[in-house]
Design a protein around this nucleic acid. Structure first.
Lengths: 235, 235
DNA sequence: CAACAAATTTCGGTATACCAAAATTTTGAC
DNA sequence: GTCAAAATTTTGGTATACCGAAATTTGTTG
């Protein structure tokens, strides 16, 4: 892990905190506080914040504290729309260009999913899911494509995660991925687009449900102090 | 123009220099030199470099000077592939969602293109072209989509520009755009995908030609000092 | 003259200092 | 007690200082 640059490491840490919900949407990320907390100076932390901003996890406001992004339903829907197109293209290109070894690697990941389904927790399952989609982008042999694919995956990470822990069932998680690999084995571009479409359409619905719920909760305690973990009592 | 942040302004300046060829592919961008030259400190210039790096115009190398990206043919082909998919999606969504006013605005741009074709230079024509594609992304009413569309447009800006000044003819520049607007007027998603496909397929060929040529030239004087405008004499 | 090694310079990465704009708190008037 | 205005603190933006790693130059040796 030490082979990454310091800003990248800091970004990883912050990303985890955001995605796991330690830093909740709307909270401000103060440069000094977080820099001190992590034992680094403001400079690399600042850079880390920019990284997460381009990933869409943090929202920069000129001359104000950056805040953890509060994705609207429309925004999430838009992002799913893009992810859908990007992943369909990846699948299509992978049908043309993937090596047999790469297809086997994808199949391996799905097998792992199936094997471990009942023994691991949602976070671990989710990380496997992420690795599957990353491997698919790799198999398309188009680096910039893999790059934006990664960007949108991480933008939707938290939403997907929240959706995943609610709608956890073997059929969705395993079968849909199996369909994708099967289509890839057959080098069937039409089938893979369809499989990915089904996969993400379901995802979109799940996400919308979860976010709608979260927004409802958020407006319930809208006046909480947003830079403290605990809600302080009013004196 | 003063309403932008300082790093953004610096990035704009550098971007222009790169796209116009003042900073040629392979040249190193030293923080101190450029900061002094532009009368700012290293901090905002550093940030500007990161911005351009995410746009793909600059390549960061750990512990080394960043260099102006030297896109390979494969890389450009990959980027065109992505741009194609992104713009097709934009067109499709625009067919569903564009307001009549937005369609009119697009048509207006094409009209301007046609009117001014014989009187303005390649750079100006190109900027109009860029504004057309940006407006199309806007009409799709999907902000993250417009964002990555912009990213890939700027990554391909220089290549497209080089291609444009070589293959300049009214039929390509005007007719193709007209087809796109017509399809949009008809709200015909299939037609607009086709029109965009034709447009960018031609573009891809042109770019490949130009870049092949540029690479050939570059290897001819491969040993030039890459951080000076003029080739210094060896003593 | 060539080649390798040591000294020097250059340069990116990080930390720190300073400033101006925002936000917050305090204070004073009504 | 309330509200507004002023003083204070907080915070992001920028400049500068410092460090260690790379690259370059210089010097030495065969």
């Amino acid at each position: 892990m030490a082979d990454q640059t310091l800003p990248a490491q800091i970004a990883n840490q912050l990303r985890r905190d955001i995605l796991r919900g330690v830093l909740r949407p709307g909270m401000s990320i103060k440069e000094r506080d977080n820099a001190d907390k992590m034992g680094v100076s403001r400079t690399p932390l600042r850079e880390a914040i920019r990284i997460l901003a381009t990933e869409g996890l943090i929202e920069l406001r000129p001359a104000r504290s950056p805040i953890v992004s509060i994705p609207s339903i429309k925004q999430i829907a838009d992002e799913v729309e893009v992810l859908l197109a990007v992943e369909k293209l990846s699948g299509e290109l992978a049908c043309e260009r993937a090596t047999d070894a790469e297809v086997d690697a994808l199949a391996e990941i799905v097998q792992t999913m199936s094997d471990k389904f009942d023994t691991i927790d949602a976070v671990e399952m989710f990380e496997i899911d992420m690795s599957f989609h990353a491997a698919l982008a790799q198999a398309a042999h188009n680096e910039p494509l893999a790059e934006i694919h990664g960007t949108f995956l991480s933008r939707l990470w938290r939403s997907r995660f929240l959706a995943a822990i609610q709608r956890r069932n073997r059929e969705r998680v395993v079968d849909h991925h199996t369909h994708i690999v099967d289509a890839l084995r057959d080098r069937d571009a039409v089938a893979i687009r369809a499989a990915i479409g089904v996969h993400l359409d379901h995802l979109a619905e799940d996400i919308i449900d979860v976010i709608t719920q979260e927004i409802a909760e958020a407006s319930a305690d809208a006046d909480r102090k947003d830079d403290h973990e605990t809600t302080p009592l009013r004196t």
